Simulated assay, not measured.
Amino acid sequence: MPMKLAILSRNSKLYSTRRLVEAARERGHSVRVLDPVRCYMRIASDGFGMHYKGRPIAGYSAVIPRIGASVTRYGTAVLRQFELMGSYAPNPSDAILRARDKLRAHQLLAAQGIDLPVTVFGDYPDDTVDLLSMLGPPPHVIKLTEGAQGAGVMLTEKPSASRGVVEALRGLYANFVVQEFIGEAEGADLRCFVVGGQVVASMRRQAPEGDFRSNLHRGGSAEAVAATADEQAMAVRAAHVLGLGIAGVDLIRSRRGPLVLEVNSTPGLEGIEAVCGTDVAGRIVDYVAAHAE
């Protein structure tokens, strides 16, 4: 059945957005890219309405959100409005909000027994030394809770450095967590791309010389690898716990087994499609079409 599909994206020229449009059109679906910032809403007990650039919009079977971190709050409100108007979203608004808040996501994953690097979080300056003692000796990884693509991730190798960075971030009123550093991973992680309870592609990303962040946007390299059965099961479970039908789950290989580093609700397609040669966009569209009314 052909569906009427909306893709929420601020830029229709981005690779991931373009590929989803291509995949949808190849399959005979009607598709439109909507800038979430240009959507505006009427909310009332007698029903929900939405306009886009001066005209009413309605009747979308499904919405694929590609909402950037800078517009999380408004973008998820727009997505929620679509959901209330009857559109299917593979990643619902509440699931995106859970995944975007790294602290909340870590709490939810750990509560379900999903292993991750030990994480500490605190707010009061006088408690910094004791907070770091709960984690153990450095190196420490300090992460802004709303960073993306490796931005806002720092490695400190001495207790004084950890304290200094924590104090500096507190002075900026930034939200952050401090984590144990997994040295045996040697700057590599595993991106598992989950669609509908299956890992459809996976790649190993390696940090460039002199860095520990493996993000491709930071000059990291990547190769296609097969995730183990345990790694696939962990990635699928992590996406499920956060309520995401589509997710990029970053794992790290440690001595105690795979650990979840992060669950990305808007994973990019360019790197993984190029490295793995998999039509990930097509898998996403097929999954959404199977679940849309």
Rank of each mutant, 00 (worst) to 15 (best):
R283C: 00
V260Y: 05
V280Y: 03
T266M: 09
T128E: 10
E146Q: 15
M154V: 13
A229N: 07
D126Q: 15
G197D: 07
L8W: 14
V33T: 15
K13V: 14
A105K: 01
D279H: 00
Q198V: 04
P65Y: 09
E223T: 08
V31H: 00
D127E: 15
T119V: 05
V120Q: 02
G54N: 04
R32V: 13
G86F: 09
G59F: 12
V78H: 14
P90S: 07
L8Q: 14
E262D: 04
L14I: 09
K53G: 09
G150K: 00
D123K: 13
E180N: 10
C39S: 10
R255Y: 11
F176Q: 06
P137T: 10
L251Y: 02
A23Q: 02
L216C: 01
P36Q: 15
S70C: 12
R163Q: 12
E273H: 01
E146D: 13
G59L: 13
A105H: 05
G245D: 03
F181N: 03
H291P: 10
V141D: 05
G122W: 01
L97Y: 12
G220Y: 07
H106N: 11
A77W: 09
G257I: 08
D115W: 11
A62K: 04
D127K: 14
L132I: 14
V63Y: 06
A23S: 07
G171N: 08
Q179M: 06
R283Q: 02
G187C: 08
T76P: 08
P138G: 08
E157V: 15
Q232A: 06
A111Y: 15
G75R: 15
T17K: 01
C276W: 01
V63S: 07
S214G: 02
R170W: 14
G282P: 00
D101K: 04
G75C: 10
G268N: 04
F193N: 02
P90F: 04
G282I: 01
C39D: 11
S70M: 13
H140W: 10
H217K: 07
T156M: 09
G164S: 11
V199M: 02
R38W: 13
F212Q: 02
V71Y: 15
D46G: 06
R191C: 00
L259S: 03
S30I: 10
R98C: 05
D189P: 02
G277F: 03
A69H: 11
A6V: 08
A95I: 09
G248Q: 05
D189T: 04
S202G: 02
L132N: 07
V260E: 01
I114S: 01
A105F: 00
H106I: 12
G277R: 06
E273D: 04
R27Q: 05
V285A: 02
D189R: 04
L14Y: 06
M203T: 00
R42A: 08
